[in-house]
Structure formats: C-alpha cells, structure tokens
C-alpha cells in the first residue's frame, strides 16, 4: 500500500482560474539554480544574491550601473549593418539582422555613450551579447573607431565592455579587418595619452580578445567570466585532452598575467572612479 494517495484525479483548477507569472520578473540563477526576483537583481546590480554569480546583462544594464543617474548621450546610435557580401547560409544575413533587432530592440551588437561616472566624463562602448552572439562586424568596428575619435577630440577617457563570441562570420573578411581598424585607432588614442579601460565580461573570445579587449591601459574582468582566443571545444579537439578545471576563466587569465584585476560588479563603479581620479590628478 502506498503512503500517498491522490484524492482527486488530474488537474482540478479551472483554466480561467489559472494564474500566470508575468515574464521577466523571476529568473533562475544559471549557477546556483535559485530563483531571483527582478527587484533583487536590480538592487544587487544583477549579481545573484545567493552565490555571487554575475548574471549576463547588456548595454542598458551596464549604462544604468555605471553612469551617474543613468544619464548619458548615446553616440552614433543610427549605424546599422549592411550586407556587403549578400551573405546567405541556412538563413539570409539580412533576416538574421532583422530577427536580432526584433528580439532585442537593438540595432547591432554594441552601443556607445558619453556620460559621467562619479562626476568623471567617460565614453563607454558596451557590447550586447543578445544581438547575434555579440559578434563583431562593421558596425561594432565603426562605432568603436568613431568613439575613439570622439574621445580624442574631447579628451575623455574611453572604456570598452567586451562580451562577444568573436568576429561576425556573415561579414567575413570585413569583420576580420575590424580587428585591424580598432587596434589602429587605439594606437592613436594611446599616442594622445588618453586612458583606455578594457572590461572583459562573460564571454570574451576570438577576434575581440585578439584586438581591442586585450589592449587596455588596464584590462579588467568580472569574476568567473570566460575569456580566451580559441574556443574550448576547438582546443579540446586539437590537443585531444580534457581541459583543466577553471581553464579560460577570468581567474585563470589573471593568474597568467593578462588582467590587472578582477572586479565584482557591485564594486565596479567605485573602483573605476578611483582609477579615473588617479589618472586625472
């Protein structure tokens, strides 16, 4: 005999009495699997209150966290991707772009803005992973290039928040050349002695790692972020061995000498402010 017996058969709640949870209010932490309420996320700078996991967020949230009173002027917001190669794989590139915009409300995988961080002028170019995997195509390169020109003209420190799967395959060699373009512009920024902060967030890989993400006067990262050049699957297939635990994590990259420090999102604004203050005085 079972110790539990169902008294009523099936689901007895009437359809019209069914309660729905509105979308986007609750989210499960991908690390500890506990459920987080949106208000908790907002209060805690999108860091899990239980395990400290830094949730994946986009430019909207980063601007909100870093700019004073969430006030900023967006730079070059109207640039959109062209399709110079008429690229088509299983889908047309133009369809992928339209779908990306429909899903995210974004025009491409980066937004750049001029605002203030604890009173310090700062231009931040922030990548959005939700738009075609944060891939770097002509728009990403061009916005970064123009933002650097803007920083040189107004003598304002520059920051890039990287979050990308790498170069955008649908623009092939055009996207490859964005690596050259952004690196060349950063060389000009360096000549002007204007500080450039590179923040690497989860994930930063491929052509982005091999260009602007690794070229900061300081390179910093969020805890636990995956950072690397080649993808772990490719490396595993090449060397035919399992990869060590923590391979390509921010902590691993720091240990090998390619980051200046790792900063929790909840302390990021303070730490950036002290850096900017020290550079300015």
């Amino acid at each position: 005999m079972s110790w539990f017996k169902r008294v009523k058969e099936g689901i007895t709640t009437k359809t019209e009495e069914k309660k729905e949870t509105p979308d986007g209010i609750w989210e499960k932490c991908p690390s500890c699997k506990k459920v987080l309420h949106l208000s908790e996320q907002l209060e805690n700078q999108y860091v899990c209150v239980y395990c400290g996991y830094q949730l994946r967020i986009g430019s909207k949230e980063y601007f909100e966290i870093l700019f004073d009173n969430n006030e900023f002027t967006e730079l070059y917001p109207d640039l959109t991707s062209a399709d110079p190669l008429n690229f088509e794989d299983t889908k047309k590139y133009t369809d992928r772009l339209a779908e990306g915009t429909r899903k995210t409300g974004l025009k491409d995988a980066i937004r750049s803005a001029h605002g203030r961080l604890h009173g310090h002028d700062l231009v931040i170019a922030c990548m959005d992973f939700s738009f075609i995997g944060g891939s770097m195509g002509s728009v990403v390169g061009e916005k970064i290039a123009r933002s650097i020109d803007y920083c040189i003209e107004h003598r304002i420190p520059f920051m890039i928040i990287s979050k990308s799967g790498g170069a955008r395959m649908m623009e092939a060699a055009f996207s490859l050349m964005q690596m050259a373009k952004t690196s060349a512009k950063l060389a000009l920024l360096a000549e002007q002695k204007i500080p450039y902060i590179s923040l690497l967030t989860d994930p930063t890989t491929g052509g982005v790692t091999a260009s602007y993400a690794m070229l900061g006067d300081i390179n910093i990262a969020e805890p636990g972020a995956m950072i690397g050049f080649a993808g772990p699957r490719v490396i595993k297939e090449t060397i035919k061995k399992d990869l060590p635990k923590g391979f390509q994590s921010a902590e691993f990259v720091l240990e090998h000498g390619f980051l200046d420090f790792i900063v929790d999102r909840r302390e990021m604004k303070e730490k950036l402010a002290s850096f900017l203050r020290m550079m300015a005085s």
Binding site: M179, S183, T209, A210, S211, Y212, A213, M214, L215, G228, F229, A230, G231, V234, I235, T238, I239, K241, L243, P244, F247, Q248, H256, G257, F258
Partner: peptide, 17 residues
C-alpha cells in the same frame, strides 16, 4: 593561430592584438 592549451596560457589573443 595554434588553438592549444599553452597558447591560451601565454596569451594568444594578447600577442595578436
């Protein structure tokens, strides 16, 4: 560029950049 374990440890991305 070689996609190896040591290559990542020694900063393949940084070297190219």
């Amino acid at each position: 560029a070689y996609p190896g374990l040591e290559a990542e440890e020694r900063g393949q991305g940084e070297a190219i950049a």
